[in-house]
Design a binder for these strands. Sequence first.
RNA 1: GGUCCCAUCGUCUAGUGGCCUAGGACAUCACCCUCUCAAGGUGGAGGCACGGGUUCGAAUCCCGUUGGGACUGCCA
Length: 420
Amino acid sequence: MDWLGLSYDEGPFLQSSLIADHTAAAEALYAAGRLYACDCTRDAIDARTAGAAKPGYDGFCRDRGLARSPETALRFAVAREGETVVADLIRGDVTFANASYEDFVVVRPNGVVLYPLANLVDDRTIGITHVIRGEDLLPTAPKQVMMWEALNDCAGVEVVALPQYAHLPMLVNEQRKKLSKRKDPVAVESYRDQGYLPEAFVNYLALLGWSPRGGEEVVSRDVLVAQFALEDVSHSPAFFDVKKLTHLNGEYLRAMSLEQFVEAARPWVAPWSSDWRPTTPPPWTKGQFDEALFSRVAPLVQERVATLGEVPGMIGFFFCDVAVDEAAFAKVIGNDPLGQTMLAAAIERFADLDWTATDLHEATAELGEAMGLVLRKAQAPIRCAVTGALVGPPLFESLEILGREAVLERLRAALARASA
RNA sequence: GGUCCCAUCGUCUAGUGGCCUAGGACAUCACCCUCUCAAGGUGGAGGCACGGGUUCGAAUCCCGUUGGGACUGCCA
């Protein structure tokens, strides 16, 4: 929540500190005859209702006039007729038949007030105006409305207006099932760890079930706050699409200034100088890393990554020994005589050359031309020798930044490796 | 089983009776750009679940069907 910049205006409140209120509310309800004692065990209820059309508690103890004891729980006497309406900000009035609710337990035999009532009492005492939660809680909303109104009817209990309810659509997985904390990757921290920006994450989340006016999907937090309305929220479940999140994150990354990008990437490229650090460290050491060098390299990768976690892998060759992609090496150098010739020619040509990206570019093009190779073919062995891979940041800028000595050294090493 | 919710491209959505031969975004495909990869540009394919109504006119309203989901604890 902190990471996402989401904060609260008051609280947090500890439910345990409001226990006296919970008990008082339960007593008031009992005194008003809305709660009754019940000593049925689960087994007894099941035995009684086995084969019945309607499962659940059958109201057996409702009229038995049982006295309260350490063996009795307190159940709420739900009206047998009529209906309860939940005025939902998102879905409108949702009507439930009271008969479809059983007399649910509100207080345990040991006196503990259960969550549904406790939660509701907290809302009343804290002055909650809006209850915004997942759609999965919609079926329990009538119970709360019933109890809320029952409480308002109790003598000596302050009348409090019902809060506004808003039941948000569920977030589902590929199987269209409600997202599960156990089975699905819902940990926000892991997105931070992978290098998603909080602004992008919040932006994407807002897009799930809601859309900004005007059609522009990249919206700042200010616009979000100004435009968002519960009434506009979609009614149907949404699938969390990481691909789209990733795209959006890339847009945010590219929209940053160089300074912002460099700073945002710090935890991934220089974790030792950052308060927070991702679980995967960069392939280089603190001694190998060069802050100034990174600033020069950053523009090369800023528009090529969609998450900050991708940065280290893309620029490792600037700071430490190249991790050679064997398949790539074999393809353009090991098994390709032309590639080796190209390297040899480059070593000679690069020895004395104005060390600028432009000259490097031209020289490589000319070398290739002399061998009948287009530039895309000519640069491949050089790229592989220097960066270890066939894909990466712009080659000639990279060579310029890396410096003549390092480049020549790697070209020679690759050539030696090929003939070994 | 019962109750409730939901139903527009693969995905997220715009759409509140005529502006819809249904718009956008992600993904996807093609082309362009190009030193690789991206980014960017252009274009393509792709959807109103089905059936009845209501109406001069339905993606939009009503009913039904089908499909999906949630809930159904002396857990929170």
